[in-house]
Amino acid sequence: MSKDRERARFTRRLTAWVDGEREPKDQTLFVMEQHPPRHVRQSEEEFQRREEDRLRKFFNWYPIAAAVICAVLVAILLTTVMSMPGFGEEDNPINNEVSDRYLEYGAEDTGSENVVTAMIIGYRGFDTLGESCVLFLAVAAVMILLLRDRKNTSELEVRQIERDEAEAMSHEDLILKQVAWVLIPFIFLFAIYVLLNGETSPGGGFSGGTILGAGLILFSAAFGFRRMQVLMNRRRYSAVRTFGLLLYGVLYGLYIFIGANGLPNYLTGMILLIDLAVGLVVACTMYGFYALFSRGEI
């Protein structure tokens, strides 16, 4: 009976601690031996002076130490570089059978004539999956740091943003608008071309995605945040972003499954679809950075 109650109390305390309601300092969650302070505490001024002294000493010594470290590092690296194999020779150790294999069978194995695309999407797709997750998490981290809501925004900031917007509305940036009006269709066209032709020409998910994101940024900068909201609001943005990552995971899983089990692949344009998913993730990442940096919301 008492044991049960003990456990219940322990659980309650643990949840309270995890929730951050209470610090477990002198509770029984962990017990520390408490020593009496060894020194007599010096006076406040003494303490202050010593701290300042330490900071000054740090600032005096830090540049010297840093410079020495940099010089030593560069010297070591330069001597290493001198004994590296020559630049651009065909029988360097890096040009081994792996790259030969990729070049020889890449087009057959993956159906992509551009071997770089075949490598990052086909042979080493797990690497790209991890990288898509990195981009996803980077946007999430920037969101944590910069997203505005009612709690962390002061009245002053809100008024400042409103004033900026009104100013932008009242005298419009004519040159930017006209240039954007002409350029944006071509940028989107080029982005889609690069995205869809990653198999046969230089380009692919990463390049096309960044160009698409740059086009979105130009649109948002030229025509204002309001009109961008019509094209992409917050819900749609997170839906597209998550959809891209999930699509990549599902398609690549399917790709591995079919390839490993020797099943017939009815989807011949598999690489194209995977490339498209990567492009969606990258474009959303680029636009998300811009929106969060400029206004603090998407």
Partner: peptide, 27 residues
């Protein structure tokens, strides 16, 4: 001879990174 890299670097290094720097400078 790596055109993939050239396209990406031109869009990323000269475009997006600089825009992020400018926005930070404004802030």
């Amino acid at each position: 001879q790596s055109p993939d890299l050239a396209i990406t670097e031109a869009a990323v290094g000269a475009g997006v990174t600089s825009i992020l720097f400018f926005l930070t400078l404004k802030k």
